[in-house]
Measured scan of single mutants.
Amino acid sequence: EAHAAIDTFTKYLDIDEDFATVLVEEGFSTLEELAYVPMKELLEIEGLDEPTVEALRERAKNALATIAQ
């Protein structure tokens, strides 16, 4: 499951495998979680700032909209 989540994140969020791995290690496994989890939870991840989190959430929401079509 972790590998599938990493693949999904790299494909749809335009991030590298290392960043995707950090997200999975922090407990995220779906685009929905990244799109809708409280921003505070993402900001608790070391190295993430508000602009990065906002961009990540926007990419996740856009990916979900694209997949739904």
Rank of each mutant, 00 (worst) to 15 (best):
E1H: 11
E1V: 13
E1L: 12
E1T: 12
E1K: 11
E1I: 13
E1Q: 13
A2Q: 14
A2C: 07
A2G: 10
A2V: 11
H3N: 10
H3I: 13
H3C: 10
H3F: 10
H3E: 10
H3P: 07
H3G: 10
A4Y: 11
A4M: 11
A4V: 12
A5E: 03
A5M: 09
A5D: 03
A5N: 05
I6F: 04
I6P: 02
I6T: 04
I6V: 08
I6M: 07
D7Q: 14
D7L: 14
D7E: 14
D7R: 13
D7Y: 12
D7G: 08
D7H: 14
T8G: 04
T8Q: 06
T8R: 12
T8W: 09
T8K: 08
T8Y: 12
F9N: 01
F9E: 01
F9V: 00
F9T: 00
F9H: 01
F9W: 02
T10K: 12
T10Q: 09
T10G: 04
T10V: 15
T10C: 12
T10P: 01
T10M: 15
T10Y: 05
K11A: 07
K11G: 04
K11L: 08
K11Q: 08
K11C: 07
K11I: 06
K11W: 09
Y12R: 02
Y12P: 01
Y12N: 04
Y12S: 03
L13I: 02
L13M: 04
L13E: 01
L13N: 00
L13A: 01
L13Q: 00
L13G: 01
L13H: 01
D14C: 12
D14L: 12
D14P: 02
D14K: 09
D14Y: 11
D14I: 06
D14R: 07
D14W: 09
D14H: 10
I15K: 00
I15H: 01
I15V: 08
I15A: 02
I15L: 06
I15P: 01
D16V: 04
D16M: 05
D16G: 09
D16Q: 06
D16H: 08
D16P: 09
D16T: 12
D16W: 04
E17C: 10
E17L: 13
E17S: 10
E17V: 15
E17P: 10
E17F: 11
E17H: 12
E17A: 13
D18E: 13
D18M: 11
D18F: 12
D18W: 14
D18N: 11
D18V: 13
F19A: 05
F19E: 03
F19W: 07
F19T: 10
F19H: 03
F19D: 03
A20H: 00
A20R: 01
A20G: 02
A20F: 01
A20D: 01
A20T: 01
T21W: 15
T21D: 04
T21S: 10
T21V: 09
T21F: 10
T21N: 09
T21Q: 13
T21K: 15
T21H: 10
T21G: 08
T21R: 15
V22M: 15
V22I: 14
V22R: 15
V22D: 02
L23F: 03
L23H: 00
L23N: 00
L23D: 00
L23S: 00
L23V: 01
L23R: 00
L23A: 01
V24M: 07
V24F: 14
V24C: 05
V24T: 05
V24D: 01
V24G: 02
E25S: 15
E25L: 14
E25R: 15
E25V: 09
E25M: 15
E26R: 15
E26P: 01
E26W: 15
E26G: 15
G27A: 02
G27I: 02
G27T: 01
G27C: 03
G27K: 02
G27E: 01
G27S: 01
F28R: 01
F28S: 00
F28W: 07
F28G: 00
F28Y: 13
F28E: 00
F28I: 08
S29F: 15
S29R: 15
S29P: 02
S29L: 15
S29Y: 13
S29M: 15
T30N: 06
T30K: 07
L31N: 00
L31D: 00
L31K: 01
L31V: 04
L31H: 00
L31A: 01
L31C: 02
L31R: 00
E32T: 07
E32Q: 10
E32S: 07
E32R: 08
E32F: 11
E32W: 15
E33D: 11
E33W: 06
E33P: 01
E33K: 12
L34S: 00
L34M: 05
L34I: 15
L34F: 06
L34K: 00
L34P: 00
L34Q: 00
L34Y: 01
A35Y: 08
A35M: 10
Y36V: 09
Y36H: 10
Y36R: 11
Y36Q: 09
Y36K: 09
V37C: 13
V37S: 15
V37Q: 08
P38G: 08
P38Q: 08
P38E: 12
P38D: 15
P38M: 07
P38I: 07
P38R: 05
P38F: 06
M39A: 08
M39L: 12
M39K: 10
M39T: 10
M39Y: 08
M39I: 13
M39V: 13
M39Q: 07
K40C: 08
K40G: 10
K40F: 11
K40E: 13
E41I: 13
E41S: 09
E41H: 13
E41Y: 14
E41Q: 14
E41L: 14
E41R: 13
E41M: 12
E41G: 09
E41D: 11
L42T: 03
L42M: 08
L42K: 03
L42P: 03
L42S: 02
L42W: 06
L42C: 04
L42R: 03
L43W: 05
L43P: 04
L43T: 06
L43Q: 04
L43M: 11
E44I: 11
E44H: 14
E44A: 14
E44Q: 15
E44L: 14
E44W: 09
E44S: 14
E44R: 15
I45V: 07
I45D: 01
I45P: 01
I45F: 04
I45T: 03
I45C: 03
I45Y: 03
I45N: 02
E46M: 14
E46A: 13
E46V: 14
E46N: 11
E46I: 15
E46Q: 12
E46G: 11
E46D: 12
G47A: 06
G47S: 06
G47M: 06
G47V: 05
G47T: 05
G47P: 02
G47R: 07
L48Q: 02
L48P: 02
L48V: 08
L48C: 04
D49S: 07
D49W: 04
D49V: 03
D49T: 08
D49L: 05
D49A: 04
E50C: 09
E50S: 09
E50F: 12
E50P: 10
E50R: 14
E50A: 12
P51S: 13
P51L: 13
P51F: 13
T52C: 07
T52S: 08
T52I: 08
T52D: 06
T52W: 08
T52E: 05
V53P: 02
V53G: 11
V53K: 04
V53C: 08
V53Y: 05
V53N: 01
E54G: 07
E54S: 11
E54R: 14
E54F: 08
E54P: 00
A55D: 09
A55P: 01
A55H: 08
A55C: 10
A55S: 09
A55G: 07
L56C: 03
L56V: 04
L56H: 00
L56K: 00
L56I: 10
L56Y: 01
R57C: 04
R57T: 06
R57I: 15
R57P: 04
R57D: 01
R57V: 11
E58R: 10
E58D: 08
E58T: 09
E58S: 06
E58N: 08
R59M: 12
R59Q: 11
R59F: 04
R59L: 12
R59E: 05
R59V: 06
R59C: 07
R59H: 07
R59T: 08
R59D: 06
A60R: 00
A60L: 04
A60F: 03
A60W: 02
A60Q: 01
A60V: 08
A60H: 01
A60Y: 02
A60K: 00
A60T: 03
K61Q: 10
K61H: 07
K61W: 06
K61A: 08
K61Y: 07
N62D: 09
N62G: 07
N62K: 14
N62Y: 10
N62L: 14
N62V: 11
N62H: 12
N62I: 14
N62Q: 15
N62E: 13
N62S: 10
N62P: 00
A63Q: 04
A63E: 03
A63R: 03
A63L: 05
A63C: 05
A63P: 00
A63I: 07
A63V: 07
L64G: 00
L64W: 03
L64H: 03
L64M: 07
L64R: 00
A65D: 09
A65V: 11
A65G: 06
A65H: 09
A65P: 03
A65Y: 08
T66Q: 13
T66D: 09
T66Y: 11
T66W: 11
T66F: 13
T66P: 03
T66V: 14
T66A: 13
I67N: 06
I67A: 06
I67E: 04
I67W: 06
I67V: 07
I67H: 06
A68D: 08
A68Q: 12
A68L: 11
A68K: 09
A68W: 10
Q69C: 07
Q69F: 04
Q69H: 10
Q69L: 09
Q69A: 12
Q69V: 07
Q69R: 03
